[in-house]
Design a protein around this nucleic acid. Structure first.
Lengths: 179, 179
DNA sequence: TGCCATGCGAACATCCGTGTACCGTTGTGA
DNA sequence: TCACAACGGTACACGGATGTTCGCATGGCA
């Protein structure tokens, strides 16, 4: 049930970062006082949400074999499934002003960047910087999460959409060859 | 100079949507009173910024030949150049709660969606919904804008990066063929 | 039954952002 | 030189969000 609180708070604050704590508490079906008891201040709540998101990512990343050839696909598929709890981490404004959080995020990105760099020897384009490819992957995740929350995309379709679009692009293959 | 005010306000509010009007005024090198004189209320300022962004897009879209085969490339190239002023429009939280703005945004998307649907007969993949392709294009724009504002991407390189990535994907072509 | 923990609501003091009014300064043109 | 407009700064009133405290209700447990 504490999980439900984190989920609700995340989605409310994502939809409107200026939402009051009263709004968050009401949406979670919890008293404002109780919310204060668990998270003494607003920034504490935000930090907790971000930290929770990082924990989620860690719990997923540790199951990925970063040495395998399908590591990227595996990682992306698992990340898509996490949804808004993680979207919060990368979209919430001013989160990187907390140095500790920013450091954890950088530490989280590094193995993925290394993986991308390694795969640029085989299946990934070498004419693009690794950080650009990483950001493109994230952008695909955002896309999927947004479409899911809008009800336009079925969660089970999401990984295929993201991977296919990011890796192969939106061009029809026959036309792309001629470009 | 009014343009400078709009630009500054846009970037400040994009970086932190909860920034106070005092912050905005200070960043723009203008008195808070003067800001109030020009925009009586906070929502008036936000609406003005969004409206300005829409005007910018209109001023760009009217130069694009939507019947040409390179319409998408042309449009994207021009949009990349607009930068944060337009990013604001699509990223600022809760902007779609204003029905008039939301309507203008939908009206802005429609010709592009039609264009995509038409191009799915020739150069674009037919196994993806048009709205997904549209969102993918937007995601590419976000990516470029963010990278530019971080100083990692040269503005002149941006259009090529975006178009190449979105259309062809990040896979090395030789590997992609086998997939 | 009595005890304790947990959660909720009400009330309160406080702070911060907002909107407004007033005044001083500057610069421009008659 | 004077009048006037534009701008910035100060001061104040107001409202909403925030953080804290207290009291009450509920529910498990001895």
């Amino acid at each position: 049930m504490s999980v439900h609180l984190l989920q609700t708070a995340t989605s409310v604050l994502l939809k409107d970062p200026t939402a009051s704590l009263g709004d968050v508490a009401r949406a979670a079906g919890v008293g404002r006082t109780t919310l204060h008891k668990r998270f003494p201040t607003r920034t504490a709540l935000v930090r907790a949400l971000a930290s929770d998101a990082l924990d989620l990512i860690d719990s997923v990343a540790c199951h990925v074999d970063f040495d395998g050839d399908d590591a990227l696909e595996d990682l992306m598929t698992r990340l898509v499934a996490l949804g808004p709890r993680v979207e919060f981490l990368l979209r919430f404004p001013g989160l990187d002003r907390d140095e500790e959080l920013a450091a954890r995020i950088r530490a989280m990105d590094r193995p993925v960047l290394d993986l991308i760099t390694r795969l640029q020897g085989t299946k990934l384009r070498r004419d693009l910087p690794a950080w650009w490819i990483l950001n493109t992957l994230y952008a695909g995740l955002f896309n999927a999460w947004e479409a899911i929350s809008d009800g336009r995309l079925a969660p089970l379709d999401a990984p295929r959409f993201v991977l296919s679009t990011v890796f192969e692009g939106v061009s029809d293959v026959r036309a792309a060859d001629r470009t």
